[in-house]
């Protein structure tokens, strides 16, 4: 069976179901969207903490991750050659806002970063162009941290995503990803110029916030009265996404970093902190992946009978 015919058969099977899973975001080429959202979120967080801790490698990492995120988004689009058209609906579409945010972030990074890392650059970081770049990147960063959750909340066809907590949760992911990026960057540059204790403390606090928000979202989906949202939770906790959730999100993203942090496995070092960051980021990726893949469309039938065709 070819890939196309397999996809067709899958669609026909899905259309027969009362609870039809969404497959466009997350399956096949759709995985690039998850990668794009993940990278862009981490990039914005890395930039934020890079600014807070005045850590230039963190800013560079943020810029590179954002570039990778942009490429991943392009790889997802059906018609990537038309990407520039996404600027048109900023007034209503969160994807447009995200596109503008990413563009500002990347252009701002191009203006602000080179004078910081290269010698003999035509303008300085504290020149008018440098300040302009800083401002554009900072504005873009805020948009990138904020917009992603709203893209999902605006998806009225997927009740599980259509939650007011989703944007806050995605903001928390961006912060957690940003800290993770800085922890990894510190090891790569072998220059722990950032106060690691502060970073780890923030990581623990943000991880706590993510756990609480996620638990609230699950609780809301289970008690909100929407059967599609409940089905999504079931898919995530006990269905086709359970392996990714327990293995990826909980084990890799939470248990392993906490075990490493406890110091029982090995004494804390720059390398161990980098491993904590890496596992934490991987866990966030799986969290986003499972949430997206667990999306179930609102069922169409007003009354649920036994489906026969």
């Amino acid at each position: 069976m070819t890939e196309i015919s397999a996809k067709y058969e899958q669609l026909i099977e899905d259309l027969r179901r009362d609870y039809r899973p969404q497959r466009e975001w997350g399956e096949g080429r759709g995985v690039f969207l998850v990668i794009g959202h993940f990278l862009v979120g981490v990039a914005a967080g890395a930039w934020l903490f890079g600014i807070i801790f005045n850590y230039v490698p963190g800013l560079v990492a943020g810029f590179l991750l954002a570039g990778g995120g942009g490429i991943a988004h392009l790889a997802f689009l059906g018609r990537p050659e038309r990407f520039w058209r996404m600027v048109r609906h900023v007034r209503t579409a969160w994807i447009s806002r995200g596109f503008v945010g990413l563009t500002l972030f990347l252009v701002g990074g191009v203006l602000y970063l080179p004078p910081l890392v290269l010698t003999g650059w035509p303008w300085a970081a504290d020149s008018m162009l440098g300040y302009l770049g800083w401002g554009m990147a900072a504005f873009g960063m805020v948009v990138l941290i904020v917009y992603m959750g709203f893209v999902y909340t605006a998806s009225k066809g997927i009740p599980f995503w259509n939650s007011p907590l989703h944007p806050v949760l995605y903001m928390a992911y961006a912060l957690r990803g940003g800290i993770a990026a800085l922890l990894v960057t510190m090891a790569l540059f072998n220059a722990p110029s950032v106060d690691a204790t502060s970073l780890v403390t923030i990581w623990i606090a943000v991880t706590g916030v993510v756990i609480v928000l996620f638990a609230l979202e699950i609780q809301g989906a289970l008690t909100g009265g929407n059967p599609a949202a409940r089905r999504s939770v079931r898919e995530m906790l006990a269905g086709r996404m359970a392996v990714y959730f327990y293995g990826g999100t909980l084990l890799i993203g939470l248990v392993v970093p906490l075990a490493l942090l406890s110091g029982h496995i090995a004494p804390l070092s720059v390398g161990i902190l980098a491993a904590i960051g890496l596992f934490s980021a991987l866990g966030d990726f799986f969290m986003k992946y499972t949430t997206i893949r667990a999306g179930i469309y609102l069922p169409l039938r007003p009354r649920q009978g036994r489906h026969v065709e």
Binding site: W25, F76, L77, G78, R79, R85, Y152, G157, G295
Partner: peptide
């Protein structure tokens, strides 16, 4: 552009 956000909405 084939982003499929309309399908989710």
């Amino acid at each position: 552009v084939g982003c499929r956000s309309c399908m989710m909405a």
